[in-house]
Design a protein around this nucleic acid. Sequence first.
DNA 1: GATGAATGAGAGTTCATTCAT
DNA 2: TATGAATGAACTCTCATTCAT
Lengths: 222, 222, 222, 222
Amino acid sequence: MNESRFEKATFAKTTQDRRRQVLDAAASQFAAKGYSGANINDVARQAGISIGAMYSYFSSKQDLFLAVVDNATVLMEEILRDVAECSADVYEYVARMLGAAREFAGAHAALNQLYLGLTAQPPGELTVDVSEQIEAVTPDILSGLLERGKAEGIVRGDLDVPVYALCIDNIFMMYQFAFASQYHRQRLAVYLGVDRAADADALERGIAAFVEAALRPAASGA
Amino acid sequence: MNESRFEKATFAKTTQDRRRQVLDAAASQFAAKGYSGANINDVARQAGISIGAMYSYFSSKQDLFLAVVDNATVLMEEILRDVAECSADVYEYVARMLGAAREFAGAHAALNQLYLGLTAQPPGELTVDVSEQIEAVTPDILSGLLERGKAEGIVRGDLDVPVYALCIDNIFMMYQFAFASQYHRQRLAVYLGVDRAADADALERGIAAFVEAALRPAASGA
Amino acid sequence: MNESRFEKATFAKTTQDRRRQVLDAAASQFAAKGYSGANINDVARQAGISIGAMYSYFSSKQDLFLAVVDNATVLMEEILRDVAECSADVYEYVARMLGAAREFAGAHAALNQLYLGLTAQPPGELTVDVSEQIEAVTPDILSGLLERGKAEGIVRGDLDVPVYALCIDNIFMMYQFAFASQYHRQRLAVYLGVDRAADADALERGIAAFVEAALRPAASGA
Amino acid sequence: MNESRFEKATFAKTTQDRRRQVLDAAASQFAAKGYSGANINDVARQAGISIGAMYSYFSSKQDLFLAVVDNATVLMEEILRDVAECSADVYEYVARMLGAAREFAGAHAALNQLYLGLTAQPPGELTVDVSEQIEAVTPDILSGLLERGKAEGIVRGDLDVPVYALCIDNIFMMYQFAFASQYHRQRLAVYLGVDRAADADALERGIAAFVEAALRPAASGA
DNA sequence: GATGAATGAGAGTTCATTCAT
DNA sequence: TATGAATGAACTCTCATTCAT
């Protein structure tokens, strides 16, 4: 199994409930205080288990962190694949992805913050392991949809697929991060004003319109 | 002066050289290990001063951090204003901003990492002070250029200025961050392949093309 | 329990032996060096425990100090009550109190020094808490015995009870402190000479005689 | 000169004003925070001189402290001698000494606190030097007055002069300390109530009455 | 396997003292 | 001689990790 790279055998044997409590507590602490700032003893307390148990599940703070990240990655990949499956073309995909980003940020705030933190992680021991987990699923999907769009004539035929995929994903990430940190939240307010920043539906439509404008063949307007 | 909010009087009196050494050392340590992970004693050692001197310059780790951030903010704002001044229209601005982002990332790698870290900072004491420093200069400039572009007919007349400005700035930020962390670097390679990721000029032209496609009036193609 | 105001739960769970070691070590260090001068690491070392354990028992140096004081207060109050119970009248009480002061000073030298130090503590955070613990037991007992003595005609009928009680207690305190500091010890030698200062029994009889002289009704001599 | 034992030659050469500023600042800091708790840099700042100057006047914190104490001792001895000279007999002396104690406590609060602190100083380097300064003037005066009182028949002929002198001085000291610390102030309030504790004249008369009662010959009532 | 008291290296910070200017 | 920036040992307190029960 994917998760077992960082956990000890004992963790697999405990109840699903306990596993959830531990991973949730860890996610919330790491998200709230960062890797260095988080306190393993606090995590254990919040999870309702002893620090001894904690160390029987994970052999170090680092492994606990990596397990949490691993877990989050799995969850995100599921969502990403779901969105892809439901989307008929790249335009629908863009709209759905923005919605999914918002939903994920709402339902898994800690994981979302954690994810943002990960992308900012300075190079070091943690990063080495973490970057291996960068999902290649979105690149593949986006590239695929763009290529198909070209074939179907619904996107500009001359666009640079990899670069466009990157730019679109950048917009996804930034939208998802908009809910993750004080900085991003405030930035949103600066750009849109407090009221518009609060109207997620309209915002998503606006962002989707930006992307569409970049993709639509010029002739389509004629 | 802007910088003196977080430093003690003694720091202002020191030589410019020493100021640089301290701020550089602090930036590099905070960038490399994050706020919690960084060690004031290491900073002092790297700056070639005693820990006592460090505390005669800044009254706490937090103040040192904020001074570094403040410093970086000032520097970035200068660059942002320079770029704006040299740019005739929004298209030139986009191109120049991408170049400036790359240059900044190259010349001030530590500050760039630090900046990325800031945007990921979990809410807390630090963030309160830090978010006040979010520069509103780019929003103003971008909005202005888009409005002017509308008036001049070089950008689509129906575009939603705040949202477009946000999207464009998102693309700037993500490009700048592409050089800041292992995660972003690797992500770039995943999207573009190692070779294309290394050709910054071409990449910037590609990104600029994406933005232009989103902005150009449909009629322009007719 | 009284003692638990300043200690953490962990301390209550430890063995009585360990509790004693910690409190004794702390008392001796605080007594020897004062609050500011004492070193928590030295206390831990002297108590034979790690500094980590120390901080799992008390959450700060201040709390450790207050716990020691609290402890000493409880002990002293016990002794004070015992002496009161055994004393038929104020004259016996005076004699017994002097003896008890000497015994306490001998058996609990550190606590005695600590007590002296407390009375000299400059106003501040420590004093706020500490002064609440000033035992009101001696004032009550002394006043009661003087009133009863008046009723029984064994003390002068016109004496001012509160002031006399204060003066007598002053004499008790100064006698107890005579063993607590270099200053007081030397002062005793200056007044009495080294030989007489060493003969505690005779000294106590002398002091008791002074107090009796102040209390006895004038008519008793006729 | 007496004062020059602990100061360096430079201190003698500065103006009287500067000398006062330094000694006053030191007295107030040592009184407020104790020897260990006081900060030499703060003393210098409060005295309006540089830390460098401070160390050109005194070669260590300890020497500064001892100089302050020395200074206070000289001042107190003057007062003690004045009181003695003005007093016709032991009864007048007692009354005047109580008044002098109160005045000193009012006029030199810091020195009074410092004095109390000194008497509580745990044995150590400081005490060694300090105790040499214990004035033998009160013992001599009190003993002399008691002897003369015996000869003149105004005090009991059988009283033990050294012990009585000690007891009376104890009462002086405790009265003086009543103004010096939170502990002693509160203790006074416990014995006398807040109102009576505030009426110093009446309190002094009451204390004097206690001492007189201990001294007056029994026959004097016949 | 679970517990949580215990450990101790290491962190941020202070302050007596020095010394170049 | 006066200044005050600089020094660095020492202090209080934290926390990842261990291990006896």
